[in-house]
Design a protein around this nucleic acid. Structure first.
Length: 460
RNA sequence: GUGGCCAUAGUUCAGUUGGUUAGAACAUCAGAUUGUGGUUCUGAGGGUCGUGGGUUCGAGUCCCAUUGGCCACCCCA
């Protein structure tokens, strides 16, 4: 076999020790906040039966699902059928159970819905779960966009209380405050308002086209949105009715007031307004200070299963897509045979949060080095002397290691230096005789002779 | 799915109108230094110039194809 250059698939990444330390810092922060808000952990398999996933993310989303080829196809009895199904798949994007019956999960919400339905009798509702796992999308990678990435979801199902939305708002603030990402915008809107607008402008049922276009407002401007709408067969009368909505100014409360007037003939739209108002009220009652929450009626979001509130978080001052998003979905479990379970959730995009924090230099230093002391020695005798000490240090929960080879002291110190180990304990004949180890601080260069008990006190 | 840019050592990059043995910095390893690191100095290893074809006396350099990477659009975390 010829030597091959090693590589990893497009859009995937390795995470070395340094990156993992930073990633774990984000994960543990988010986990801590989730737990504090009463969410419990859940994990689901990387792969789902393909029928669980398809049809949940819209046409565009379905195409991005990674499918898993059935194994042992070569043993199949009816090869003709296989070939026919494969040819059909080449013609258009179809799924065939004989070729592929599993797929990698595309997000965490749909597998969660599947879990809820399957375990409906064991679950106590309202059910609050969090889930931190990778998801896969057969997208073309680019900045802030990967084919394998992590989502951190927290969802509440089994209640339609708007207090849940408010709690999510609080939780988002808490997470980003802890991560020191102070400058962010949490935008909130409601799908019912968007539906209401399509009713008002005489284009009911065209929500998808409308949402896709209006979502780009801050990117392509009003003219761009109008151009796109015209291309989607929105007539001039509709556009004329839409214009005052697009030009709406003011803070969240003022915009809500104005929309109340505009949507007065749409009961759906008014319902949306009322919902957001209640959320804002609850957020106030929960005592949120310095809120980054903002009502933005141009926020649309792609996923087709949202029915009520929608959220999106963007970091201000960093050119990257949204770092968090979510919303309420009234009937996600309906397709799995369990109607009437409303849920609302939020998803944090760790990979993008990582990129943002890297760009803004927000990672704290102390999380990067994990070994506190490295024991160094000159010969076999030194190692023998060091091993019991090492065990004592570890028994005291002090992260410690010993250099595995008899090597030059320079090399051992070099190793400590590169791993950013703060202390080294040097063991030579002198130390063995007195029972004290020469402990050197690698940052300051100071060195002192200490007994093992003194070392433990010093490093604890 | 559409479009643009790029590909040379482990990494970041030089490489002249096409010319003989493809360079530098950093990184790695070793030595200067037999009980003390980061600095310095010396040396060493490391390349089928992404891959395949073509033009040419001659290709890292020009042309075509292909693969991979980055970026924008679509969409999205």
């Amino acid at each position: 076999m010829s030597i091959q250059k090693p590589s990893i698939p497009k859009g995937t990444r390795d995470f070395g020790p340094e990156k993992m330390a930073k990633r774990n810092y984000i994960f543990s922060t988010i986990k801590e906040v989730f737990t504090r808000f009463g969410f419990l952990p859940l994990e689901t398999p990387s792969m789902e039966n393909i029928s669980v996933l398809t049809g949940k993310y819209g046409d565009e989303g379905d195409q991005l699902i990674f499918k898993i080829l059935n194994s042992r196809l070569y043993e199949a009895k009816n090869k003709e059928e296989l070939k026919a199904e494969f040819d059909k798949g080449l013609e258009k994007n179809t799924n065939s159970d004989v070729l592929t019956e599993k797929a990698l999960r595309y997000d965490l919400t749909v597998p969660f819905a599947r879990y809820v339905v399957m375990n409906r009798n064991e679950i106590t509702f309202p059910f609050k779960r969090y889930q931190i796992q990778p998801v896969w999308r057969a997208d073309r990678p680019q900045k802030g966009r990967y084919r394998e990435f992590y989502q951190c979801d927290a969802d509440i199902v089994g209640t339609d209380s708007l207090l849940c939305e408010a709690e999510i708002v609080l939780m988002v603030h808490e997470v980003f405050k802890k991560l020191k990402i102070e400058n962010f915008a949490l935008k909130i809107n409601n799908r019912k308002i968007l539906s209401g607008i399509t009713e008002i402008i005489g284009k009911p049922g065209c929500e998808t086209d409308f949402c896709v276009a209006i979502d780009k407002l801050d990117k392509i401007g009003i003219e761009g949105v109008l151009k796109e709408l015209r291309e989607k067969d929105f007539d001039e009368k509709s556009i004329e009715l839409l214009l005052p909505i697009l030009h709406l100014q003011g803070n969240s409360k003022e915009k809500l007031e104005a929309m109340k007037g505009i949507l007065k003939s749409s009961s759906t739209g008014l319902k949306g307004i009322e919902e957001i108002s209640i959320v804002l009220e609850k957020v106030d009652l929960l005592g949120l200070q310095n809120s980054s929450l903002e009502f933005d009626l141009t926020l649309a979001r792609g996923l087709s299963y949202y029915t009520g509130a929608i959220f999106e978080v963007k970091a201000i001052g960093v050119q990257i897509g949204s770092i968090s998003g979510g919303g309420r979905y009234d009937n996600l479990t309906g397709v799995f045979g369990l109607p009437g379970v409303s849920g609302v959730g939020i998803s944090f995009g760790v990979d993008r949060i990582y990129d943002v924090m890297e760009e803004l230099n927000l990672f704290p230093e102390e999380h990067l080095n994990s070994t506190k002391i490295l024991l160094c020695y000159f010969d076999e005798k030194g190692q023998q002397f060091g091993l019991p000490l090492l065990t004592k240090l570890r028994a005291e929960c002090i992260n410690s290691e010993i250099y595995p080879d008899v090597a030059k002291i320079k090399k051992q110190l070099d190793y400590a230096n590169k791993k950013q180990v703060t202390y080294v304990g040097i063991i030579g004949d002198e130390e063995i005789k007195t029972g004290k180890v020469a402990v050197k601080n690698m940052v300051s260069g100071e060195q002192e002779s200490l007994t093992i008990e003194e070392i433990i006190t010093k490093l604890k």
